[in-house]
C-alpha cells in the first residue's frame, strides 16, 4: 500500500523548479506550505519568491521539481529585465553561432 517516500526538506526545499512546457528554469523552492489540518495532512503548495505554486501543479519530483506553470507569474523579474535592458541590445533574440 505504501507509495514512494519523500522528505520535504531533503527532496523539495531549495530544489530547482523546471517548467514542464519548455524545460526552462523558473526558480528555487524557497519554502513548502503544509496543510496540517486536512485529513490526511498534505503538502498544499510550494513557495518560490513571491509566488505560491499549488501542489496540484507539481508534475514530477526528481533531482529537480517539474511544475506546470500556466497562469503563474514566475518570470516577473526576468521579463522586467528582458524588456528594459536585454531586448535593447542587438542580437538578444538570436541563437548563438
Amino acid at each position: 500500500m505504501s507509495g514512494r517516500v519523500l522528505h520535504a526538506q531533503l527532496h523539495l526545499l531549495d530544489r530547482q523548479l523546471i517548467d514542464r512546457a519548455d524545460g526552462h528554469l523558473v526558480g528555487k523552492v524557497d519554502d513548502v506550505e503544509l496543510d496540517l489540518d486536512a485529513d490526511p495532512p498534505v503538502v498544499a503548495a510550494l513557495i518560490s519568491g513571491r509566488v505560491e505554486i499549488p501542489a496540484g501543479r507539481i508534475a514530477e519530483v526528481e533531482s529537480a521539481v517539474t511544475i506546470s506553470t500556466d497562469g503563474l507569474d514566475l518570470d516577473y523579474y526576468d521579463n522586467w529585465i528582458e524588456h528594459h535592458i536585454i531586448d535593447k541590445i542587438p542580437g538578444a533574440g538570436d541563437a548563438t553561432e
Partner: peptide, 23 residues
Amino acid sequence: VADVRLVQDGPLLVSMQRALRVD
C-alpha cells in the same frame, strides 16, 4: 523536528491536491 516524511501514493498531476501526504 528535522524533516517531514511525505508519501506519494499516486501520480502527481492527476491526484491534484492530495498527492503528497504528510506521513
